[in-house]
Simulated assay, not measured.
Amino acid sequence: MQQLLMIEDDTRLAQMVGEYLERSGFGVSHAADAKAGLHMLTEPPTGAAPDLVVLDLMLPDIDGLEVCRRVRALPGDTGKVPVLMLTAKGDPMDRIVGLELGADDYLPKPFEPRELLARIRAILRRRTDGAPVPAKTMRFGSLEIDRDARTVTVNGAPCELTSYQFDLLVVLAERAGRVLTRDQIMEAVRGRELEAFDRSIDVHMGRIRAAIEADAKNPKRILTVRGVGYVFAKQQD
């Protein structure tokens, strides 16, 4: 059974959503504040780290964005746990900052539990699914992408990417030389459909560039095709 950690100070909402997710086959742990949530993440009551964190940004003790930053700073696989943010409706800046800090997706409040479930399943599916590939590791000059280990290195040095960002990079690398629209990229990773004026894909691309490019402002690996989307360059260092 996959385990979820919900960090949410609205106990009534957490109970309602938790019961819904449990009926859908998940194990759910709840923390009412950030400190308790971080403790449960590093010392899980079940003995195993959660498969995903549902994180509210409006917490009483520590801002949710700071919590996301601290999660990503944790060592090993714990720091790579997928994070789905619950954000205040109509506040796009929080969403953008959260994505820049390493969150995998966001959901504005109020929300339907069914949509939360769908997004959780989409994130977890991206971690486990995927068509068979002929080679375990893709190499582009000094850049290596290991599909099985889900790691990325440049000149042997590890690159820190979220689960979602890793999947985005793989989608582009597998189609090196082919221009992909934002819709095609989102569809390939089986995420939610792109909403009008939603720039989350651009935020993630910026984070990927910062991790794998020598100069993120003058990228050589992931190129922007204005008015269309992105292309992963075949010829690299």
Rank of each mutant, 00 (worst) to 15 (best):
V170T: 12
I145H: 01
L86W: 05
S142R: 15
R114G: 13
G156M: 03
V133R: 14
F111M: 07
T128V: 13
L169K: 03
I96T: 11
E115Y: 00
P132D: 03
A173I: 11
V179R: 08
P134Q: 13
V203D: 08
M85C: 08
G156S: 04
V133M: 09
T78E: 03
L172N: 07
T87S: 14
A196L: 11
R126D: 04
E115G: 03
L116Q: 08
L101H: 12
L84N: 06
L168C: 14
A73W: 01
A188N: 07
E193M: 07
R150K: 15
P110S: 12
I123V: 15
G177N: 08
E187R: 10
L143N: 04
E193V: 02
R192K: 11
E187F: 02
T181E: 09
D129C: 10
F166R: 07
K109T: 12
I208M: 06
L86M: 15
T181L: 03
Q165W: 00
V179I: 15
Y106A: 11
R209H: 02
C159Y: 00
E112V: 02
E115K: 05
N155T: 06
V171M: 09
G90N: 10
P92Q: 00
D198R: 03
V171E: 11
R175P: 04
P158V: 08
A173N: 05
K136G: 04
D104M: 09
T151K: 13
R209Y: 02
Q165M: 05
A88I: 12
L161Y: 01
I96G: 02
Y164P: 01
A157W: 00
G79M: 02
I185D: 10
P132G: 06
A103M: 05
K89C: 02
V81N: 03
R190E: 14
E115I: 10
F197K: 14
L143S: 04
L143R: 06
P75E: 09
A122R: 14
P108S: 15
M93Q: 15
V133H: 10
G191W: 02
L168K: 04
L86C: 09
G79Y: 00
D105Q: 11
D146N: 10
R72N: 10
L143Q: 04
P132A: 10
D198N: 14
V154D: 04
F111R: 07
D202S: 11
F197S: 14
T153R: 13
V152D: 02
R182I: 12
I120Q: 08
S200R: 12
I208S: 06
R126M: 13
M85N: 09
L168S: 07
L99D: 07
L124N: 08
L172I: 12
